[in-house]
Write a protein that binds this DNA or RNA. Structure first.
Lengths: 206, 206
DNA sequence: TGAACCATTATTGTTAACAATTAACATTTA
DNA sequence: TAAATGTTAATTGTTAACAATAATGGTTCA
């Protein structure tokens, strides 16, 4: 099995930090990202920064024009989430089918760790953090399938509907519900019922 | 409309040349790509080379391990095409619904132009060109919906399955069939039957 | 013999300087 | 004044040197 690569390059680390900042809304849509600023912030040279920006551009998190640098791309209008919902469903169900018969205790530990962070964020009503962990949870589901193609396509989609995540979260009067709605997914996986898990994911993604 | 960016960076130019070399088989599967070799071959420094390799890795054309460089991916029997087919179906049908009641004669002209080029490519059995025009046709369908997000998501997917296009084309004994299978799509649009068009697209994408 | 160790080489990762391009702004001109 | 032009500053694109890591090959020792 693929070792989870303990030492990651600077570029990859920066991708994750920037992506979290942008998907959660801590860095605003339309904001310009200058290479030298980022290099100073992360205390590295512009090489890894350029690497990270290129990756984020493919994911659709930022947009780049030649010789003009990178802007945080604006999240798609909500009407497109009508399209994305069935797409996400297809992908995440496909992912679950791929890894379903290879589940280990470690997997559940990973997911429970993310969800416990989400719970904390829900309790303190920090919606930026809630979105971040919500997306992180679903990303880790897709990632578990161990298919770079699957993850790439999913990432390209989700980065474009980050606003939809936040806005749907804001509708909850009691944000802890957001956390609670994620529990059945893991429970179904633990109980070993594939069809239940698929059905629950389908109901959940909306 | 988007200007077709006249001056491209070195990285982008190298991406295209390497991708063509790999997909056409001039660079064999499993072959190792060393940065210094490529830098010498293209007479540039390693910067643009790394950029190009990162892009090709994202597209799935090469695989990279940290500190170990890039290998040309072996085209594993693309089990993911099983996933891509329903995704493409969803997206392209969604696109058609969006523009269906705004069709003009100009649209048909665009599509017929692309298809006539495809026909030529089919007749000369130039499979690289066939793929290009096939992708161009479907891209123009999606583009017609006039939604940058839709196009972006579709592009992210297609860049990962370029290889699948080519391989499915190679199965045709008479490549002109590829061209002929595209005609009913336009015919249905011309005749003004949305449900027919959607059904034909669904049958076509397989 | 062959398995473990060390030194050497090859290769990638990172950095910092330099070149080319774009943006900003003052100046000129109609 | 407003448009056009030229100049400067800010920013990205590219390069080449340096650092860190992995592959190679030979030597020793059981």
């Amino acid at each position: 099995m693929n070792e989870p690569q303990l030492v990651r390059g600077l570029g990859e680390q920066i991708v994750e930090r920037l992506r979290e900042d942008i998907l959660s809304g801590r860095i605003a849509e339309g904001e310009r990202l200058r290479e030298v600023d980022l290099a100073k912030r992360f205390s590295v040279s512009r090489g890894p920064i350029r690497e990270a920006l290129q990756q984020l551009a493919w994911e659709g998190v930022v947009e780049t024009d030649r010789n003009k640098g990178a802007l945080v791309s604006t999240s798609a209008p909500n009407e497109i989430s009508e399209l994305i919902i069935p797409l996400r469903c297809t992908i995440e169900k496909y992912a679950i089918r791929l890894f379903f018969d290879q589940l280990t205790e470690e997997d559940f530990l990973t997911w429970e760790t993310i969800l416990s962070k989400m719970k904390q964020a829900c309790e303190s009503k920090d919606f930026a953090l809630i979105s971040e962990h919500d997306i992180a949870f679903h990303r880790s589901l897709v990632k578990r399938a161990n298919s770079p193609d699957l993850l790439a396509i999913w990432s390209a989609m989700v980065s474009r509907i980050r606003r939809h995540f936040r806005e749907s979260h804001l509708r909850y009067q009691n944000p802890v519900q957001i956390y609670e709605e994620h529990l059945p997914i893991i429970e179904a996986l633990r109980e070993g019922s594939l069809s239940d898990a698929l059905q629950i994911i389908e109901d959940h993604i909306e």
